[in-house]
Design a protein around this nucleic acid. Structure first.
Lengths: 221, 221
DNA sequence: AGCAAGTGGAGGATTATACTCCGTTTGTGA
DNA sequence: TCACAAACGGAGTATAATCCTCCACTTGCT
């Protein structure tokens, strides 16, 4: 009767669970809030009854989505740390992975859950992020003004769909390309001025760059 | 009986209209789709009856939102072109303005409107964007691979709220800061490699930079 | 083959949204 | 200041979406 997660689960149940978690995550990222249960089941391609058996209430579903996303992101974080040559590369790799895992969903869901927690995953995610930021700092890929919070906010931004009806492939391509530009900008931060003179005037040969963290934003408007 | 837009309108009606347009725009950006009429009125702080008097149906409302946003963006575009010293500066300024005007709403709404158009505003917006991109290219602030389409997609990304319950001020600050990083990355694109060697290794003095448009994205996973 | 485990979806209860109507309030011009 | 058209607000009803249960049917596993 009771549905146990793990090896004891039947194959089709496992597949249903996966589809439901994916569907829920995608809908939350799209809508920016709690998705309709029917919509989750429809998108997952399973019956509504199946959804209710796996996740008796919304809390259970949202909690499972968070744990799933965090687990997958943690894996990606370890892989990035283990397989990258530099701190900057690991950091960049991790950020791209967060688009695919949908990490941003955690921050969107968080305020909707009352007193339900996931201490292990939360601590692990936080620790990995800190390690990645520290590694990137150590290699001078980013300067000390780049914080874990800033990174988290970027992850949320880039994992949300644009809501203009793009197919998933295009959506993904665009997000990764935009993230790359963002990271380029973030990683050049310590050396940038409003813009390097070499970029605005092709004539000059002066490449001395001034440290100025806040750049053009302060001069806007 | 009929509500005419313009000088003939009473002051309170004009104010209601403004509040309604702002509320609708914000909700569309937040939800990524058609907002509930009641929600629009509630957020605008006006009665539901007032909404229906101003905009008898959803089409009328959405159309008005688009025209309003485009008009304000066009103004910002002219200001950016007129008051900026370089093409790159004008371009950057315009992009920041699109966050404040909420330009991205146009692309979100577009597919919902059947056969209703706004030819003047559309043409003007397109022309200004082209002029800005061309000006930026002319000044070598961006290379030729940067297209109007890419810019439009970025505008959509950065004008959407993060959906994590931030207050409007923080939301705005974060968006502008993230956009700045993105633009830094975009504008350095022609000169970047995976990352300039000077950033990853403090030791080297070699600043010769190789042209490679696609950079790190291609090497990701 | 057999059966526990799992699925799907009809259907009734509940809740949200759409829209109208009319009594009350308010801006404006004389 | 007054008078009145213009505009406002929101109660109330119709309609639609969403929630959730229940059980007959299907399927993976031993």
């Amino acid at each position: 009767m009771m549905l146990l997660v793990g090896r004891t689960m039947r194959a089709d149940a496992l597949s249903s669970r996966r589809r439901l978690l994916d569907a829920a995550r995608e809908l939350i990222l799209k809508m920016g809030g709690e998705p309709a249960r029917d919509a989750v089941a429809r998108r997952a391609g399973v019956g509504i009854g199946t959804l209710y058996r796996h996740f008796p209430d919304q809390q259970t579903l949202l909690h499972a989505v968070v744990v799933d996303v965090l687990d997958r992101t943690i894996d990606a974080g370890f892989a990035a740390l283990a397989e990258s040559a530099t701190g900057g590369e690991a950091f960049r790799r991790y950020m791209h992975a967060t688009i695919d895992t949908g990490l941003g969903v955690v921050n969107i869901i968080h305020p909707m859950l009352d007193k339900t927690h996931w201490p292990d995953q939360h601590a692990a995610t936080r620790e990995i992020l800190d390690r990645l930021v520290n590694a990137a700092r150590r290699d001078s890929a980013v300067d000390d003004s780049v914080t874990a919070t800033e990174i988290t906010l970027a992850a949320i931004r880039f994992c949300r769909p644009l809501a203009i009806g793009l197919d998933p492939t295009d959506e993904r391509t665009i997000a990764h390309r935009q993230l790359d530009c963002y990271l380029d900008g973030l990683m050049m931060r310590p050396l940038t001025v409003d813009r390097p003179a070499s970029l605005t005037q092709a004539t000059t040969t002066d490449r001395s760059l001034v440290v100025r963290p806040n750049r053009s934003h302060s001069q806007r408007q």
